[in-house]
């Protein structure tokens, strides 16, 4: 008999398991931070056009991946309850991320607010899955969130200016690159999990 929790998990977290769509997003964040870090002068129109084209290209790749998932794995539309939860967390997360970005740019903090927000978003994905079905398949999310929190708090725990060692001009740029890479790891992991949970081969069974 199919495991009830496994089925509920796959159905309710289906969009979060389509990990390849998150890979270009993470790469876009990391790429934008590395690009901003590489600028030795004020960005000109050409610079902005090039990075915008790269980010738009990555978004198009994310869209292609979502089409691939639809073709290979089909569709499962979330319940109104889950949709409201996602809408609320997206809007609240977006507003908090803007506030965190402002804090990091305007204030000289001994931690990264943007990094903490990214870590929180990873933790929310895990809590959402645990609330709607089970969190046992997404245990790597709290691990990645803990890593994000650790990176965000490095100056507080004895590594002030860690970003300069890695060649970044500011904490924000270093943290954005690291968080982008964490999203890439989460995405690839999610994809592998989806493949394992929904194997392709069909098996014969009496009707």
């Amino acid at each position: 008999m199919q495991d009830q929790r496994r089925i509920q998990f796959v159905v309710t977290s289906f969009s979060y398991l389509q990990g390849l769509t998150a890979v270009p997003m993470g790469l876009a964040l990391a790429l934008a931070a590395v690009w901003a870090n590489s600028l030795t002068r004020r960005a000109g129109l050409n610079d902005v056009l090039i990075i915008s084209a790269a980010v738009i290209g990555l978004m198009l790749i994310a869209w292609r991946f979502s089409r691939y998932y639809e073709h290979e794995f089909g569709r499962a539309l979330a319940t109104p309850e889950a949709r409201w939860l996602d809408l609320f967390t997206s809007v609240a997360g977006g507003l908090l991320a803007l506030g965190a970005f402002w804090l990091d740019v305007a204030k000289s903090l001994p931690f990264s607010a943007v990094g903490l927000m990214c870590a929180l978003s990873l933790l929310i994905v895990f809590l959402r899955a645990a609330w709607l079905a089970t969190g046992r398949y997404l245990l790597y999310y709290p691990v990645l969130a803990a890593l994000g929190i650790l990176i965000s708090l490095l100056p507080l725990i004895g590594l002030p200016g860690w970003w300069t060692t890695l060649g970044f001009r500011s904490q924000l740029l270093g943290v954005c690159t690291a968080m982008g890479l964490l999203f890439v790891v989460a995405g690839i992991w999610g994809h592998v999990l989806l493949i394992r949970l929904l194997p392709r081969a069909g098996r014969a069974q009496d009707a």
Partner: peptide
């Protein structure tokens, strides 16, 4: 069980889920 956890699902999704 799968359909109870969502609003609706398509044939391909159920095919992959149930094997």
């Amino acid at each position: 069980t799968a359909l109870a956890a969502c609003r609706s699902a398509d044939f391909t999704f159920l095919l992959r889920l149930t094997g």
